[in-house]
């Protein structure tokens, strides 16, 4: 694989994500409405700590350890959660609305994409959780691409977006096994694997990804890794305030996260206890690696600066005063484009 000339990347600020799933639905409406795609959520948002989507994906292997390929598991449809059908007709028509309630048709499910939503961990009054939105990481060392014996997966030279060539794909699913983030989906109708395309048709028109543009929380920054005027370079390289999820998986992701700060703990007397964080350090280290502690320290000191009335470029960036500045130049309004379906 040739190294791409440039790399597009995304930063998600976990301090601002409210778990509204607008990103998820924006993606669903745009890309995964066809037959065979019902169970696909190229964008997912899970509550952490939690089992995630697909269920227990962090225990499914894949990726690389010390540069060596690690075998992975194929998540089942149940692991992802089927696309449920509801008894809408029964509830909304025929005058039975006061007797029947909305429920999933057929077999009662025991798992779904957000089954453990808002559960989190910890004991009252020190319970905690946060939301973790995920898309394909468009990795620099994509395990999916390297696993495919048909060379059906490409990493675009111009922007590093990782795409599956559905004409070459024969549905072997080695990519699905190998991706440690479990962000490949198998389309049983088309018999090909499918995944997040980083909204490349929008990107090519200067429009930000649907998940980023639709996000009401101003969580998602977009741009080229090497654009020193853009937010990605500033957050990832200059300020080193954003980290990849599970760097130990060895795929070198291009989605980065600003880790979540949490309110302080309460002690037995109900007094604020600043000595220990509400979200245990070990937990954040298990997600983002040891550098996460440096980032949290940096954020605290930058926040202190602003409280003292000083300026902080980092805080200004994260607050994202100007919405359009979040998109690294990909800020064109999609309504100004006439889209044609090919």
């Amino acid at each position: 694989m040739e190294k791409p000339d440039r790399q597009l990347a995304m930063v998600m600020d976990l301090n601002k994500c409210i778990g509204c799933q607008t990103c998820t639905i924006a993606c669903k409406r745009l890309w995964t409405r066809d037959e065979g795609m019902e169970y696909m959520w190229w964008n997912s948002v899970n509550t952490q700590p939690g089992r995630g989507t697909p269920r227990d994906w962090e225990e499914m292997g894949g990726g690389f350890r010390d540069g060596t390929a690690v075998p992975g598991k194929l998540p089942t449809r149940k692991d992802f959660g089927e696309a449920w059908e509801f008894n809408h007709e029964e509830v909304f028509f025929g005058g039975k609305g006061d007797k029947v309630h909305l429920k999933v048709k057929g077999e009662e499910p025991d798992w779904g994409p957000n089954w453990d939503e808002d559960q989190g961990a910890g004991e009252y009054p020190n319970a905690y959780y946060f939301y973790l939105p995920r898309i394909c990481n468009h990795c620099t060392h994509p395990a999916c691409l390297e696993a495919c014996p048909r060379k059906a997966i490409v990493k675009r030279e111009e922007d590093g977006i990782v795409l599956i060539d559905e004409d070459r794909c024969r549905g072997y699913r080695f990519c699905m096994e190998a991706c440690p983030y479990k962000k490949i989906y198998f389309n049983h109708a088309e018999k090909v694997s499918q995944k997040c395309i980083f909204c490349f048709p929008r990107i090519e028109q200067g429009v930000a990804n649907a998940c980023a543009r639709q996000c009401p929380g101003r969580v998602r920054f977009l741009g080229y890794r090497d654009d020193e005027e853009g937010p990605i370079w500033k957050l990832v390289d200059k300020w080193k305030a954003a980290l990849p999820l599970h760097p130990e998986y060895g795929t070198d992701p291009n989605v980065f996260y600003v880790p979540p700060l949490a309110p302080p703990r309460f002690d037995e007397n109900g007094d604020v206890d600043e000595s220990k964080p509400r979200i245990p350090d070990e937990y954040l280290v298990s997600l983002f690696g040891p550098k996460v502690l440096d980032v949290l320290a940096l954020m605290k000191s930058e926040m202190a600066k602003t409280r003292a009335g000083e300026k902080s470029e980092l805080m200004d960036l994260l607050i994202a005063y100007r919405w359009k500045d979040m998109f690294g130049g990909f800020d064109r309004d999609p309504a100004t484009i006439e889209w044609v379906k090919s």
């Binding site: 390929a69 075998p71 395990a143 096994e177």
Partner: peptide, 12 residues
């Protein structure tokens, strides 16, 4: 003779 390192690792 399997073509990719991932396949070799998975089938070893």
């Amino acid at each position: 003779m399997q073509l990719t390192a991932h396949i070799r690792a998975a089938w070893a």
